[in-house]
Design a protein around this nucleic acid. Structure first.
Lengths: 197, 197
DNA sequence: TTGGTTTCTTATCATACATCAATGCACAGT
DNA sequence: ACTGTGCATTGATGTATGATAAGAAACCAA
């Protein structure tokens, strides 16, 4: 078992001792995925929540016109999953793919069940995770409703400066809801503005 | 106490008997709000989840340019709240306002606490609500990333045919992320198409 | 009924962004 | 060192949607 980051994440958020956590983590498989490999494809049923120990994962959908839309990036210490598919046991609309060679912990429902049985504080913790997720989605909706291409990009840069450098611009564009060409122009314009100052 | 719809909603989703539910509901205030009255304003701390017994409520934000963005519509049997503000005890970024004379049940954190203490199945139920919320937000993000004005409108019509007729088009436009004028054009175009068929 | 809001439509014009197409890099594999 | 493939950039052009303004219609209150 080799998931030090997840262990740290849990122990620092839950009232739980090392023995307990180790025994629970033992049941989780750690998976190494090569760049470009898929953890989930459209129409599959997502059975896991993935915790990223190392590397970088992307979740995206493909619309009827064949265009990709990035739902989220997940670097180290982040979770990625199709919660809807897991929870409602539906076919997923998303792809989950590694952008770099990565290590992920595959967490199944059993794991959560065990945690909630053995750790009283887990329910609250899980609640917090869900609320954080909601907050995040809500923020994104607000952005998509109100911000221009440039504002979206600036917000992204401020929020995920690290991811920016590890991901092709095409994918950032598809996260922001604009074309790669537009993103390129936005960047050019920003560079010009900054130079003039 | 006069909240028959909430009572029905809870009894049909939770393993709970009438006496219990009544004693818990007693602690909830039912509020009558006139059309245009506010349940929450920007910068206030949202302390309640509102369950709509009758009428229609809207949640929206106002951006730096003064433009309104509708977050959600809540007709009878829906909840509306700023979860982030309640949960993280932050100032809200939203307004919650009645679009019609309405009756809402004001649910505070105590209520949820009581439920989770007394009703074992509540935790799961709450989880389900949160997941539904997430599913809903996710769907909206997908729409905003990929759909044209016309597609958005059609989706809205299909999803909320009832709300469509009770709400001014301006607000529907602000939900879809387009201007009222654009919405008018879209509708005209759709009418033309349907006529030709 | 009247007059006054508010909402919806329509028209014109402006613009941000998309699309299409060509070029230039940079990097990986041979 | 070559060559191919994937990205980023750039320019030319197109289009959907936004902005503004004005009139028509719907709604409401006195």
């Amino acid at each position: 078992m080799n998931s030090p980051k997840l262990k740290l994440f849990l122990t620092s958020n839950l009232d739980i001792d090392d023995d307990e956590i180790l025994s629970i983590l033992k049941s989780c498989q750690v998976k190494s995925v090569k760049k470009d490999a898929f953890l989930l494809r459209e129409n599959e049923h997502c059975k896991h929540t993935f915790f990223v120990e190392s590397g970088l994962i992307r979740q995206y959908s493909i619309d009827d016109k064949g265009k990709e839309h990035t739902i989220s990036f997940a670097p180290e210490n982040w979770f990625v999953s199709d919660r809807e598919s897991v929870y409602f046991d539906e076919a997923s609309a998303y792809y989950i793919q590694a952008l770099e060679d990565s290590e992920v912990v595959m967490i199944d429902e059993d794991f959560f069940l065990k945690l909630s049985e053995e750790i009283p504080s887990f329910t609250d913790f899980n609640n917090k995770l869900l609320h954080n997720h909601i907050r995040h989605l809500q923020k994104r909706i607000n952005m998509l409703l109100s911000a221009s291409a440039e504002q979206r990009y600036l917000e992204f840069v401020a929020m995920y400066p690290d991811i920016l450098l590890r991901v092709p611009q095409t994918m950032i564009a598809s996260y922001l809801g604009i074309t790669p060409e537009s993103l390129s122009r936005v960047r050019k314009e920003l560079a010009r503005k900054n130079f003039k100052k």
